Amino acid sequence: MAPSHSFHVHASSSHLRWSNAIAPALRVPSGAEVTLELPDGGGNQITRESVAAAGGGAAALSSFRFDLADPCVGPIYVEGAEPGDVLRVDVLDVAPAADFAWTAVFPGFGILSDDEEFGVPALKLWDLHTAKQDNHIVFRPSSPRIVVPFAPFLGVVGLAPAAAGELPTVPPMPDTGGNIDTRYVTAGSSLHLPVKVPGALLSCGDAHAAQGDGEVCGTAAEMRATARLRVTVEKGKPWVKSPWVLTAPTKAVGGEGEGEGEKREYMCLGIDSDLREATRKAVRGVVDWLAAEMGLTRVEAYMLASVAGNLKMCEVVDMPNYTIGCSIPLSIFVS
C-alpha cells in the first residue's frame, strides 16, 4: 500500500538523551514514509579535513567528545500509537550522505579494552565513493587485498521509554531499543518495537556502512546517512516485549528440489546488563512468539528454538547492556 504522506526530518532535530519529555520534531500518520538526515555515530566530529589537519588518525581522536556520541534524530510522533501497541519500522533505504566512513579504537572502549596493545587511539577512514556500485568497501588495497561487504544499516532505532527522566543514548534500552547495533536492520528489513508512550516517539541514528556481529572494537564503519523508513502502528501483539527484527530477504537454496528461494529470519533481541540474562530474554521472546502465533505449546516452542534457532551476539560493547538475538528461519514453516 502506498503511503498517504511523506515527511522529512533534518539532522538539526537531534538529541543525546532518551526521554518521553522531548517535544516531537514531527507528527505523522500511521503508514507514512519518513526520510531522516542522520549524523554519524560520533556526531560528525571526524572529517577528512580534521584527520589531515591533525596529521594522522590517532591525533584526530585527541579532541573527540564522547558526550556527543550516538546522537538520535527525532522524535517522531506516530498518530494512533498507544502503550501496548507495536510500532513497525520498515527500513526502505539507508544510503551514505558523505564519501567516507570511519572506524576507531578508543582506549578503554571495546571488548578488549583491558588489553595494553589496544591502549593507543587509532583511526581508519573508509572510501565510500564507489561502495554502492562495488557492493563492498576496501579495508586494504594490496597484498592481500581485503574487502568488506557494503551493508548499510541503522545502529540506533528506538522509542521513548515509559519512565520519567533521561537515559543516555549509548547503551541500548531493554524494551524500546535504541543503540541496538544489530547489523540485520538493513534495507528490506522490519523492526518491531513495543510502544510505551502515546505517539511512540521514534528516533534513529548511528548508521554504519558495515559491521560484524558484536561490533567488538566499539565502532563499526561509522557513516553519515540518509534513511527512508515507513512507520506503521500494529495492534494485538503482546508478545513483542523487546525489539524484534524481520530480516531482509536473501537468496537461499531451497530444500526438496525447490531450487533458490528467499530466506528471512525473525529475531528477538534480548537486552540486559548480564550476558546470560540477555540470552534468556531473547530465547523467551522466541518461545512467546511461537506459542502465540504458531500454535505451539511452550514446551514445543522451547524445543524448536533449540533445534532450529540461532543465537547472535549483536552488540557486546555499549555498556552496561548487551544485545543478543535469537532468530528462527521462516523457511521451516512450510504450509
Rank of each mutant, 00 (worst) to 15 (best):
S13V: 03
D318I: 07
S30E: 03
D67F: 14
A81L: 10
T297I: 04
R280M: 08
M319D: 07
K235E: 14
A23S: 12
K263L: 14
L229V: 06
P149I: 03
F153N: 15
I332V: 08
P75C: 02
A220S: 14
R27E: 10
L304Y: 04
L275D: 00
G295S: 00
A58L: 04
T130W: 12
L123T: 07
T250Y: 03
V148I: 13
G41I: 14
G309A: 06
G165A: 02
H208R: 08
W239L: 09
V105D: 04
A164L: 01
V148N: 03
W18M: 02
V307W: 00
L311Y: 11
W244E: 07
D175Q: 08
S242T: 12
K196Q: 15
G108T: 09
P238I: 04
L304A: 13
V105E: 12
F333N: 06
L193E: 05
G119A: 15
W244Y: 14
V73G: 05
G42C: 02
H129M: 09
E116F: 08
L16D: 10
G257H: 15
I324L: 01
E260D: 15
S63V: 03
E82S: 09
L191S: 01
V73Y: 08
A21F: 00
V317I: 08
V253G: 05
W18F: 00
L112N: 13
L290T: 03
A23W: 00
G199N: 01
D175S: 14
A122C: 03
G110K: 14
F139V: 15
V197F: 03
S335W: 10
K235I: 02
D318W: 00
G309Q: 01
M319N: 04
A163M: 11
V34N: 04
D85C: 03
A60S: 07
A163I: 00
I76P: 07
A291K: 05
P121S: 07
N321R: 12
W289C: 06
A23T: 10
R298N: 06
G212C: 01
A131I: 01
K132R: 13
R27H: 12
E262Q: 12
A221M: 08
G177N: 07
L290G: 10
A282G: 14
A164R: 00
G214A: 13
A95R: 12
P172Q: 02
A98N: 11
L36F: 12
V233S: 09
E293P: 09
P320E: 02
K132L: 15
F150E: 01
R183W: 01
A104E: 03
A248R: 10
A292S: 10
Y322Q: 01
G309I: 05
V283D: 06
D272Y: 05
E116P: 10
V120S: 03
P238A: 04
G31E: 04
L330P: 11
A187Q: 15
H192G: 06
E265T: 11
M313T: 05
T130R: 15
P3D: 05
T103L: 15
M267S: 11
P172F: 02
P198E: 13
A59T: 05
A308S: 11
D114A: 15
R145F: 08
V185M: 03
Q133D: 12
